[in-house]
């Protein structure tokens, strides 16, 4: 009997597996996007898929984001599931009208006649020196557009499970992949060999603690873990929650934690004003006000674009140090 070597999968390959498995399961499903077939995607998420499914089902599209999203809407109107890639999530703005006015509202304005099983996914996030147009987290735009679900995984397991759930969902999903996590070694993990999903709309407690709740998603999760370690040395135990799905938001998991810790810091790398952190804080105030021992706080990007070179980028984005300081202020209030 041969002992099989445990296969570890990184975040990027987890995503690829999700798409591959869903494509295999549904011969009507299509994938469209710039350079996703011949090249296999700018980062390689769709590498090899065209060989398996052919160049109609895995299709290179012109650089025309309105057209890509509109084509997805049209294909979904005829009953197909669609995965459409944005080469960088920053470029999603070029398809904005089709997303917020057409895709997002289709089910609503047809009174339930036409669902839109479309996933728009793409690489997102800062900290990589990508500068203004390759660093964005613009999820707030879409959280503010009723009819869209918004998802952002932080682990390989979730990347695969959430993407599979998104692809099976009858609603449009904007799926934020964190490009800095794509090939991170420490995120490689053994994934189940059988089919699984991570349901949309469920947050998870990554670490339990008693004194303060840290709420975040995506890349900032890893900053929060470091902060939790630092706080532990100070004698505080932090509970760390990974939201995973922004819309619909799992308020319960967040409120349950705050009822225990009475203090909360929300972290995200999007700009502050009207950002998702503000939305979480508003809900905390509405639903758990009497449990709070300190003002609910957030640590976000400054209200600036993401600048290019390191000192500038670090200045505007949340960091371990900034999050730690926000936590200490909240703990000492």
């Amino acid at each position: 009997m041969s002992v099989e070597q445990a296969v570890k999968t990184n975040y990027l390959n987890a995503l690829k597996q999700a798409i591959d498995e869903e494509m295999a399961a549904d011969s009507e499903m299509i994938c469209i996007g710039e350079d996703i077939a011949n090249l296999g995607g700018a980062f390689g998420v769709t590498e090899g898929l065209v060989d398996k499914y052919g160049k109609w089902r895995v299709q290179d599209m012109p650089i025309a984001e309105e057209c890509i999203v509109g084509t997805a809407v049209g294909a979904a109107l005829t009953g197909r599931r669609v995965m459409a890639e944005m080469q960088f999530i920053d470029f999603i703005s070029c398809g904005f009208d089709q997303i917020v006015n057409n895709l997002a509202t289709f089910h609503y304005r047809t009174a339930g006649e036409v669902p839109m099983p479309v996933v728009l996914r793409g690489p997102a996030g800062g900290y990589g020196g990508g500068a203004l147009y390759h660093s964005q987290m613009n999820e707030g735009w879409f959280c503010h557009s009723p009819g869209l679900k918004v998802v952002c995984p932080s682990t390989s397991y979730d990347a695969k499970g959430l993407l599979k759930a998104a692809l099976r969902d009858p609603n449009p999903v904007i799926f934020y992949e964190i490009k800095e996590l794509y090939r991170r070694k420490d995120l490689e993990e053994e994934l189940p060999t059988t089919d699984y999903i991570v349901p949309l709309g469920k947050a998870t407690v990554r670490r339990s603690g008693e004194h303060i709740t840290l709420v975040s998603y995506g890349q900032n999760m890893y900053h929060c873990y470091q902060v939790a370690d630092m706080l532990a040395k100070d004698g505080y135990s932090a509970e760390v929650i990974d939201i995973r799905t922004l819309v619909p938001l799992d308020e319960q998991t967040i409120m349950d934690s705050i009822k225990k810790t009475s203090r909360v810091v929300v972290v995200n790398e999007a700009p502050r004003t009207c950002g998702f952190a503000g939305e979480v804080l508003a809900r905390v105030c509405e639903n758990a006000f009497e449990y709070l021992d300190a003002p609910p706080a957030r640590c976000t990007r400054l209200d600036t674009p993401v600048p290019w070179v390191k000192p500038l980028e670090s200045f505007v984005l949340p960091s371990v140090e900034k999050i730690y300081n926000t936590c200490i202020r909240t703990l000492k209030y």
């Binding site: 997805a72 809407v73 049209g74 057409n102």
Partner: peptide, 10 residues
């Protein structure tokens, strides 16, 4: 028009 293209593709 892009939606029509998607329908036509399908």
């Amino acid at each position: 028009i892009p939606v029509a293209a998607g329908v036509a593709l399908s």
